[in-house]
């Protein structure tokens, strides 16, 4: 369980996150939606213990989060994960040494699934292949929490589809708490259970994905649009 209690992050006068309170329940799949600059990435980095709140608390399993959380949390970040002059297998080897819960067999399975060549250099991989390699690296770990920051950014629809399949195949549903940030919602909507809308550093709406369909007859994308509009009117 991840609890955010009145979390604020301030950079000078600019507030990246404002008084966020929310609880992520264990074993569920969450989507954080919102435009660029809404504070999605900051929120992810905070849960990963890599950015510290200016105000409020973040508790994971009741304990304040720190950099040590990395032992039980896998984080796919938008930048800095891959070393350009490494081969795919060297990246895998490096991750295996850094995280005791890294599973070699799972990495092998994912290598085949993601159609990656272990001898290729990272710098020679296409954007889509790099995205798949990043996913391989985090999905090979056996963690309680999985954070995916913009896993679809810059990828073409075919690759996105593949990544969604990868997620469904390799996430340990019911045990892993998964948080995905994205602004390309369509592909992952069927994977999500809960959706949050972040705008200007605040959670402006949240919903259960199937409930929105059932009660309002809306997809999350449409729900998102109506909520953004309401905001704009206010």
């Amino acid at each position: 369980m991840i609890m955010l209690e009145g979390v604020t992050k301030q950079y000078g006068t600019r507030k990246s996150l404002q008084d966020i309170s929310y609880t992520f329940e264990k074993g569920k799949v969450y989507g954080i939606l919102g435009p660029n600059g809404s504070g999605k990435s900051t929120m992810m980095k905070m849960i990963a213990g890599l950015v510290y709140p200016t105000g409020g608390k973040i508790l994971v399993e009741g304990k304040p989060v720190s950099r040590k959380i990395a032992a039980s949390l896998a984080f796919l970040s938008t930048e800095g994960m891959l070393y350009q002059n490494f081969k795919v297998e060297q990246m895998i080897h490096f991750f295996a040494t850094q995280y005791p819960d890294f599973q070699r067999e799972k990495a092998e399975e994912l290598l085949a699934f993601m159609e990656l060549d272990r001898r290729q250099k990272v710098s020679r991989l296409s954007k889509g292949q790099q995205g798949r390699l990043k996913l391989l690296l985090v999905l090979s770990r056996n963690t309680d929490i999985l954070l995916l920051d913009e896993p679809f950014i810059g990828l073409d629809p075919m690759v996105r589809d593949m990544i969604v399949k990868g997620l469904v195949s390799f996430i340990d549903f019911g045990r892993q708490t998964v948080i995905i940030t994205t602004h390309e919602i369509n592909e992952i909507e069927p994977v999500l259970e809960e959706a949050l809308l972040l705008d200007n550093g605040r959670i402006t709406a949240f919903c259960n994905v199937e409930e929105v369909r059932e009660k309002d007859g809306l997809s999350v994308l449409e729900w998102l649009k109506t909520n953004v509009k309401k905001e704009a009117v206010l």
Partner: peptide, 15 residues
């Protein structure tokens, strides 16, 4: 310099 972009090296088990 190799770590500066994103400082992802801080996300690990080493202090």
């Amino acid at each position: 310099k190799a770590e500066e972009k994103g400082q992802y090296w801080l996300h690990g088990t080493a202090d």
